[in-house]
């Protein structure tokens, strides 16, 4: 059976969308305030969320909303495949500033790698599956499709939660989609470009 997109979640321009359904909308333009409002709205109840850098908050919020809305339990052998352009630039800059001011903050330093977001999603959802984070200049559907198909075809994973999680200051766009061996939206470049 073909692997197709069974569900997706997008967080962009103050909106949280799951499978075409608008779940939450907020006119707050400050990302930190917006994501805190969303956290309270979706009742995440995960204190560690507050400690995370903006990239992790965005990735964890997106994956949490997507997983919470699944009708079936997430397959524990679901790989994570994330991409973006700016890595974790916001926390990098904050960390750099704290160094120049004399005291490097450990709480910032631990988030100065984009793949930490994969760890945070894995910890929250008790996943011990394959995971990778790649940086591209722009959204790269060809790569996401090829890598996702390889993960499933080589049996490294039964499903893949893949996508683009980009944030730099208050400019953010996160699209995560779940690919499973089930009927859904065809895993094609044009479909991903329509979603992003």
């Amino acid at each position: 059976m073909k692997s197709e997109i069974t569900h997706y979640c997008q967080i962009k321009n103050g909106k949280v969308i799951f499978d075409e359904n608008l779940l939450y909308e907020d006119k707050e333009v400050d990302f930190q305030k917006f994501i805190k409002n969303a956290y309270q709205f979706f009742e995440l109840d995960y204190r560690k969320f507050y400690k995370m850098d903006p990239l992790c908050k965005l990735a964890v919020m997106n994956s949490s909303v997507l997983i919470a809305n699944l009708t079936e339990k997430l397959d524990p052998k679901t790989a994570l495949l994330l991409t973006n352009k700016s890595a974790c630039v916001d926390i990098d800059l904050k960390h750099q500033k704290s160094i120049t001011e004399g005291f490097a903050r450990p709480a910032d330093f631990v988030y100065t790698l984009p793949n930490i977001s994969l760890g945070e999603i894995s910890i929250k959802n008790k996943l011990r599956s394959e995971n990778s984070f790649f940086i591209f200049e722009t959204f790269n559907p060809e790569f996401l499709i090829t890598y996702t198909q390889q993960l499933i075809q080589t049996k490294k994973a039964n499903a893949v939660l893949a996508g683009w999680v980009e944030i730099a200051e208050n400019d953010y766009n996160a699209l995560l989609f779940l690919v499973e061996k089930k009927k859904g939206i065809a895993l094609k470049k044009e479909n991903l470009l329509n979603l992003i």
Binding site: G102, F103, R105, P106, A107, V110
Partner: peptide, 13 residues
């Protein structure tokens, strides 16, 4: 443990 490091910094700074 990361929080513990932050507490040490508070004491120092």
């Amino acid at each position: 443990s990361i929080d513990a490091l932050e507490l040490i910094i508070i004491l120092d700074k």
